[in-house]
Computed example of a mutant assay.
Amino acid sequence: MGRQLANIYRLGVKELWSLARDPMLLIFIVFSFTAMIYSSATARPESLHKAPIAVIDNDVSPLSQRIIDAFFPPHFLTPQHVTPSEADAGMDAGRYTFVLNIPPNLQRDVLAGRAAEVQLNVDATRMSQAFTGSSYIQQMIGDEVRTFANRYRASVEAPVDLAVRMRFNPNLTQAWFGSLMELINNVTMLSIILTGAALIREREHGTIEHLLVMPVTPTEIMLAKVWSMGLVVLVAAACSLTFIVRGALHVPIEGSVPLFLAGAALHLFATTSMGIFMATLARSMPQFGMLLVLVMLPLQMLSGGNTPRESMPQFAQDIMLVAPTTHFVELSQAILYRGAGFNVVWPQFLWLAVIGSLLFSFSLMRFRKTLSQMA
């Protein structure tokens, strides 16, 4: 047993030195756990943020000015007063997402109790802002008109008062969700890439034949790749969680980071085994890259990270129970967002241990078969 552990350790150290001599992979690791996470949290806000808006004010009344003053940062940029021709040219050039056309006599019609219409032109090519912003603007205009007509800021008391409490993310800050989900996705992606690249690199360089004549077993070779590449990803994830998510983005982590890293280690056991299995199927890095696309898209889209699993077809929910990412996303969200302890997430730990053991067994059988064909 001691000799086997020594072999696994030395082979793992060899993998780390091989990775250290590959600058492109090192740059990719650093980029994935820094810039990718930061940009995912800040560059794609789901809420309305600094949307450009222009106004055609044909009424020039206190009510129209009140409506214009309602649009202010950070949801909107300061409204630009334009003419109809300037508005059309601005939307054609992509300078405005929204153009609000306030008709003449709007205030007179509102005070007289007559129906009035305000036209909103939306650049629908900016899909996220267009969908969210049109609802914002409709509600804002309605509130301002009602307040102006009633002469005070009040609303009719509803028969039922709905008290909404946003738990775990009170301000609905997208960065809190986007950064952690990108971190979770990158743990999966990098673990598959690094183990697969390690095996393919040895096959392309001919060093795999050197291992075949050494007194080591396929199990030891595979375990060395699993622990070394898994350790790299785990350390990178821990550093990213500390310096990028908590430090740069100021995302509060509610739960135990060591418990999350323990779950990540189990997940890495499964995904690194998956990476070795995929590397035995691919004959080169380009083939491995194409295979990675086919595997990563379902793992990310159907794991429950982007959309709740309950909204998916039942067969998709059942199939994804055998994917490690499903259970890793569940335990990560429970620990990092909701502060869950081991007594809550132990089923996900058990699932990851079982799936990881099965993937490792299948990968080992395929790895042995590949080595026997090369011998």
Rank of each mutant, 00 (worst) to 15 (best):
M1E: 12
Q4I: 12
I8Q: 11
L16R: 10
F28V: 05
I29L: 08
F31V: 14
I37C: 05
Y38D: 02
T42N: 01
N58H: 08
D59P: 00
D59S: 05
I67S: 11
D69C: 03
L77I: 10
Q80F: 07
T83D: 10
M91R: 14
F98P: 07
P104A: 05
A112R: 11
E117C: 02
N121M: 15
A124S: 12
S128L: 13
Y136I: 15
Q139K: 14
V145M: 04
R146C: 06
F148P: 06
Y152D: 09
A154N: 12
A158R: 14
N169G: 03
L180P: 00
S191W: 01
G196T: 11
I200E: 06
H205G: 13
E209V: 12
V213L: 06
T219Q: 02
I221R: 06
M222D: 09
V226Q: 06
A237G: 03
A237Q: 10
S240W: 01
S240F: 07
L241F: 05
F243P: 04
V245Y: 01
H250P: 06
P252D: 12
E254K: 04
V257D: 11
P258G: 12
A262V: 13
L268H: 02
A270Q: 02
M278T: 07
A279D: 01
M296L: 15
L297V: 15
P298W: 02
L299M: 15
G304H: 04
P308E: 09
F315Q: 07
M320Q: 10
G339M: 08
A340Y: 01
G341A: 07
G341M: 09
V345N: 05
F349G: 10
L352R: 00
A353G: 13
G356K: 00
F362C: 15
T370Y: 02
M374G: 04
